[in-house]
Design a protein around this nucleic acid. Structure first.
Lengths: 111, 111
DNA sequence: TGATATGCTCTACATTATAGAACAAAGCAA
DNA sequence: TTGCTTTGTTCTATAATGTAGAGCATATCA
């Protein structure tokens, strides 16, 4: 009867954390930039949106249109924010990993 | 020319950590048990092996046949161990995540 | 020698990851 | 008032990962 716990995919987790970190300035292009820096990889904009789309479908993030009149031209932004379910998924994902890293000692900090 | 960093998928990371944690007792069935407990999900044996197979193809784990004559009957085990490249992938994966969680404060410990 | 226990291999399919081109809309110059 | 530039999003496609479960292999022991 009880639902199985939900976990985030690798990239889903990264993107979700990015949205969280950007706070009120979380929109596609900005998220892409942050994620690219954090991963030290050249992430495509398509990868970001596809993931954001899935996260939204699952109720982990919400989105809305930004102001219709930006300063320097260009299309209006679509902002994202992490929902409670997203925080929970992040928590579950982290908990499972923690159970496995507990007591482990490698050359680097495993959280 | 420099290669892009490699990251682990969600399940790959979980399985790799399981192998690490089990040490000299890391074989399919045992890994499955540990991972099922850690994730609180009923993981199939096929999921474990398929992932282990992929990790091996990438050089993240190595495997070899165990003793041909186990105590209580049953087929010989196939043992796994994490290779240096696997530890590095684990480290990269963790580093990217850490950059995003730094400074973040949620209700739970984010590593 | 076949029932039972233990463990692995194979096949198939669903979900995620990832790229990049196409499209949309706003400001600004002339 | 049009078209170039800037900024940002949507669409389409494909590769890689996640996941299940049936079936096969092999050892012990009645």
């Amino acid at each position: 009867m009880s639902e199985q716990k939900d976990y985030l995919g690798h990239f889903e987790e990264i993107v979700l954390l990015g949205v969280l970190k950007l706070g009120s300035d979380a929109y596609g292009a900005k998220i892409r930039q942050l994620v690219s820096e954090a991963t030290e990889r050249d992430i495509s904009i398509g990868a970001i949106y596809a993931t954001l789309e899935r996260l939204e479908r699952k109720g982990y993030v919400g989105s809305w249109q930004g102001e219709a009149t930006p300063e320097r031209g260009g299309r209006a932004k679509r902002y994202f924010k992490v929902e409670g379910a997203g925080v929970l998924a992040l928590s579950n994902t982290n908990a499972a990993r923690s159970r496995l890293t507990a007591g482990l000692d490698l050359g680097f900090n495993l959280g």
